[in-house]
């Protein structure tokens, strides 16, 4: 897994690529936690390059989503496709998370 963050229009865009699995999920959580602790409350997670997510990855996403919600923050996802989309849908994440077609659309959707 590779994870990169950049600032765009007052939000943090997080690009996650490769595999989000039991080995890499802790790094995902640590990176997002650090960003939230720095006071960033608006995040867009771009899954364009993500090939794979397992229940361990979903657990990491859920932890971050709950943390952001408890702080009144916002979280949107972009480019959820292929097997990743399939796993989101089977697990019900497709309906509990906010998913947009593109990063631009996700940034537009942030209040």
């Amino acid at each position: 897994m590779a994870i990169r963050t950049r600032n765009d229009r007052g939000a943090v865009v997080v690009e996650v690529s490769g595999r989000l699995d039991a080995v890499t999920a802790p790094e995902f959580e640590t990176t997002l936690n650090a960003s939230i602790q720095q006071g960033n409350l608006r995040h867009v997670i771009n899954l364009d390059g993500l090939e794979y997510v397992s229940s361990a990855g979903l657990r990491g996403i859920l932890v971050i989503a709950k943390l952001l919600r408890s702080k009144g923050g916002q979280l949107r996802f972009a480019n959820v496709r292929g097997t990743v989309r399939e796993v989101f849908d089977i697990s019900g994440f497709g309906s509990i998370l906010t998913i947009d077609e593109s990063v631009a659309a996700a940034l537009d959707g942030l209040a």
Partner: peptide, 16 residues
């Protein structure tokens, strides 16, 4: 079908 804040993640792996 539960809302995000009510969701536990237990059992999701075997469900997949």
């Amino acid at each position: 079908s539960l809302d995000l804040l009510d969701r536990g993640i237990g059992g999701l792996g075997i469900h997949l």
